[in-house]
Design a protein around this nucleic acid. Sequence first.
DNA 1: CGGGATGAGTATGTATACATTTCGGCGCGC
DNA 2: GCGCGCCGAAATGTATACATACTCATCCCG
Lengths: 255, 255
Amino acid sequence: MAAGQADATRGKATSQTVKALLALRDLILSGELKRGERIAELSVVDRLGVSRTPLRMALVRLEEEGLLEALPTGGFIVKAFTERDIFDAIETRGTLEGLAARFAAERGVTTIGLSAFHRCLADLDELIGRGKLSEDDFSDYVDLNEQFHEMILAAADSPVLAHQLERASALPFASPSGFVMAQAVLPEALKILTIAQDQHRCVVEAIEAREGGRAEALMREHARLAKRNLILALRDRASFQLVPGAALIRQHGAG
Amino acid sequence: MAAGQADATRGKATSQTVKALLALRDLILSGELKRGERIAELSVVDRLGVSRTPLRMALVRLEEEGLLEALPTGGFIVKAFTERDIFDAIETRGTLEGLAARFAAERGVTTIGLSAFHRCLADLDELIGRGKLSEDDFSDYVDLNEQFHEMILAAADSPVLAHQLERASALPFASPSGFVMAQAVLPEALKILTIAQDQHRCVVEAIEAREGGRAEALMREHARLAKRNLILALRDRASFQLVPGAALIRQHGAG
DNA sequence: CGGGATGAGTATGTATACATTTCGGCGCGC
DNA sequence: GCGCGCCGAAATGTATACATACTCATCCCG
């Protein structure tokens, strides 16, 4: 059985490469492969059930993604991140999103695009208006929030910027929704979401009014809200465990 | 001869993977692989003298780099870029460099770092002060200019941002020195370099004075100078040919 | 007793063989 | 005559075999 192995389970015909990429990323984010640890290809091959070739493709991709670091001698180690690294990742993502928002404002958005924005805003309003939020509500919020951020990127209408921003959001804790689930257990959750939603609305307003500078500044500030969430999450053990990729974060004193 | 092939030339033991990456990138930038063209692995393998395995590693890396596009059906095509794509790439790079400059200003630079900046500025001053510049002078300028941009990045002291900025500068025409050689043949060259150098100096001044906002704005504007160079280069056939990756640029009317 | 060198074991880098899938061409049917 | 379907060839995806390079541990010598 040399290739493809016709996957007896008829369901999904995902290629081995994709399977390896997803599974390996999972292994890293879940902490099964500890930060700083060198990755032994053979042991991972055993665990994932793919051969070395697709695994090595995944290793290269995850290195470009920033989750792995190539050793000069060959092979890879799992990267470790400091608190400041995460701040910088969020600031970087926010800066690029700010650029996207400015592009959207300067270049203009179609009527159809604007109505899609307003529908998204209304959905978010409805969600937050419920008052007390269940875990499912937070999960829905994540979906809608990601949809909003994707719409900003689409409105910028710039493939090059899209490519960069996707890369900047690849680090799990840099993603726009990285800390939403973590803040679900915090008392400040509703307040933070309310503020975030107001920023969403203002950004759309700025884009609609062709106010590029304002749209950019707002989008940046919106990302900084994620930083504040991070600070809260880091102070609360239960919350911290919900941060994606928490296992990669090297806290000040603790190992 | 299964692996490594012990490279009889003792000098450089470059791995086949690196060799494939560099050679393939060359093939693309030189236009030997035309934009929009699908890359046939076997034909490239023949031309480069490496086996398919390292070549495929290179293909994946160049896709992440943005030079190739993966087809859903498998395989890759050489990306084509419009004039606006290049503008956006430069603006993106400039935005990230602006962030780096702001970080440098906010976080402070050591005395040693500052003296390195001033030495670089002095070297550039001396070069431009020569008046009429030879082709070698332009080549020297490229080196010093890249040195300056690397110093900004180093001063930001942020591995995450560094990773992103390196990726944003990977596209040849997005790089800080992308258009310097192209402008060498233009009459406005000296004037442009003079302006660029003034911006260099002001950025360092802003960083030194901890003026983050100013440093950021200046660095952005500095990148926009590259855009103006691009516009000039696009109007001049001889200059256009000196733009790195010119073969990837799809001009308005022309094929 | 410690340090360095050497060897065994192992891991990575590379090449190649093989299976599957896709794309192009041809023939048959409508 | 045109369209649909099938077949074949070529290319990609995958697995594995092999060679080199690294790592680590042990042993010998100082």
